[in-house]
Nucleic acid binder design. Sequence first.
DNA 1: CAACAATAGATTGTACACAATTAAACATTA
DNA 2: TAATGTTTAATTGTGTACAATCTATTGTTG
Lengths: 150, 150
Amino acid sequence: MASSSPQSAQNSLLKLENQLCFPFYAVSRLLTKAYQPLLHALDLTYPQYLVFLLLWEHGQLTVKELGERLLLDSGTLTPLLKRMEQKHWLSRRRDPRDERSVIIELLPAGRALEAQAGQIPVQMLDKMQMTPAEIAALRLTLNHLLTQLA
Amino acid sequence: MASSSPQSAQNSLLKLENQLCFPFYAVSRLLTKAYQPLLHALDLTYPQYLVFLLLWEHGQLTVKELGERLLLDSGTLTPLLKRMEQKHWLSRRRDPRDERSVIIELLPAGRALEAQAGQIPVQMLDKMQMTPAEIAALRLTLNHLLTQLA
DNA sequence: CAACAATAGATTGTACACAATTAAACATTA
DNA sequence: TAATGTTTAATTGTGTACAATCTATTGTTG
């Protein structure tokens, strides 16, 4: 009854090597580290790069909209956006039509980074060494988990 | 030629929704948040839980061994382990045979948490709502990425 | 319209992460 | 064995994350 007893089954699930969540945690950090040399050339951190992905596409967004899309709250975004403002990449100003909202607008210096970042996605895909089929399957699983957990 | 031109292909890869790494980043944080109510009952954070998974299995490990297995360095582990030491969950002492190493040993109060944590893995699997086939495929992909990026 | 509720950000405090540096102990070798 | 190099943690400094709280603004309703 060894491996099928409740006690040992429970213990085996409490081993690091049998965890499913730890690889997510580890891969997420390793991916950020893989971005690092590419982003360092642009003086960017990974969360700041994510903000830029949204601003390059939309030009301007409120803090609330950034938070909804990145799943980050103002406690994280406010200081991060202040640092990006100090580098003149974006501007922060209250929405005159609703003074509760803060509009984050891309500035020329921030727009200029888009071209420099153009090669980053392919370089990352190269580092990951995955087949298109693997990538497609992974997208499905990650999207499932996103909707399941969000 | 619109969508196949280098410029637009590059731009589409710079959209958040087309990112493969962002879902990893988001899911990893959502998983940590999903653990939170379960771990809060034990007064644990997720990284501290990971340390316990190793200590419950091995009883004692050096900081170096913990770092190798969790992919964390001393800058993260030292303060984390000091907090766990303050709660009398583990002890920190230099290895007499090699004073460079610090041995982290599980204490009774830390061992006692193992039983209370026994239900956490199944509760997390329940939250994820994945089929065994999906889980198996995901394990393969995550392990591939771990070896590819580590 | 006044009271109350809801919303959007900012702030505070705690805990990671990690690059870079430092310090002590151990290993190697000329 | 003395000098040099390597290894292991600790330290320092910066940047997220996030819970909890606070403030100002807007919306709702009696």
